[in-house]
């Protein structure tokens, strides 16, 4: 691909999703965009770029953005955040929210649903403690295709073997043909919504917990700060933000600070910590 076409595509993807396509990632263009080109009856990436430039085809541009922003996802990714959720965050939220008995969780950039569904399984495992509580999980993604996949809760044999303990597979999934489908009851615990992280999340409401893991790494500094500002506006004063293992707020924003002793967890810089660490 020539430099001008690469620049054109990366600008287009950046404008629409915030995702920064660096030259090292250019190998992704071919594997991800060839299927898009084929679907649109175009011979290759050159013709695809030409069509975008000449016709400004909205559907094509949408498909290109979607193909470039789709990420691999696994159940209980990194494990540690889920252990923290189960052992530290949730027990303390049960105390802090005892008056309202209501907890709202946002899984931002949920891809095909593994993250929110992992939370559902944990909550279900702890249901004895959760009686009378209303836990709302809102999962968002920029890609309607990913959201449809997530809503169906249907996964390949490969996908259910990535991070998901076998006991949970047996307990919460049904085999349908060569795929595995998450129990309808668990699926109904999650509200899926199309949402672009560049937009302001106030339309989603306020949250006690936000999972925004392994998304910011794809953004440049100003975009990271912009997204974190939005999250800070909808996160309760004692709420917790989860970022991915390779992500940090340091040098990006002073609105958040790390939770002492809990890797990957952040709280409002001026907020009351709901999470006590001793």
């Amino acid at each position: 691909m020539n430099v001008a076409d690469f620049e054109m595509l990366s600008t287009l993807v950046k404008e629409r999703s915030g995702l920064v396509l660096t030259q090292e990632k250019s190998y992704l263009l071919e594997t991800r965009l060839m299927p898009v080109a084929r679907r649109h009856g175009l011979k290759g990436l050159e013709e695809l770029c030409q069509t975008i430039k000449q016709k400004n085809d909205k559907v094509l541009i949408e498909d290109v953005t979607e193909a470039m922003t789709t990420n691999e996802s696994l159940f209980f990714r990194d494990q540690k955040p889920f252990d923290q959720f189960q052992n530290v965050v949730l027990p303390q939220l049960l105390v802090a929210r005892a008056a309202t008995r209501r907890i709202r969780i946002w899984s931002a950039a949920c891809s095909s649903g593994q993250e929110p569904f992992s939370l559902c399984m944990l909550l279900k495992e702890m249901q004895a403690k959760m009686a009378g509580w209303k836990v709302e999980i809102v999962a968002t993604d920029i890609s309607p295709e990913m959201l449809n996949k997530a809503k169906a809760g249907l996964y390949t044999q490969f996908e259910v073997q990535r991070g998901l303990p076998i006991q949970l597979l047996v307990k919460y999934f049904k085999q349908t043909g060569d795929k595995w489908q998450l129990d309808a009851g668990l699926r109904s615990m999650v509200t899926f919504r199309e949402f672009n992280l560049l937009d302001h999340p106030r339309i989603l409401g306020n949250f006690d917990l936000v999972f925004c893991r392994n998304v910011l790494i794809y953004f440049d500094q100003p975009t990271k700060a912009h997204v974190l500002k939005g999250i800070s506006d909808v996160l309760s004063k004692d709420g917790v933000l989860y970022l991915g293992g390779a992500e940090t707020v340091l040098g990006v924003t002073d609105m958040f600070k790390p939770v002492v002793g809990q890797r990957g967890m952040y709280q409002h810089a001026d907020g009351v910590p709901a999470i006590k660490t001793d």
Partner: peptide, 18 residues
């Protein structure tokens, strides 16, 4: 734990972690 073939190194690693 239980691995359904076909498998790859990632699956083995994730199951052995578990």
């Amino acid at each position: 734990e239980y691995i359904m073939k076909p498998f790859d190194s990632e699956i083995v690693e994730s199951k052995f972690h578990q």
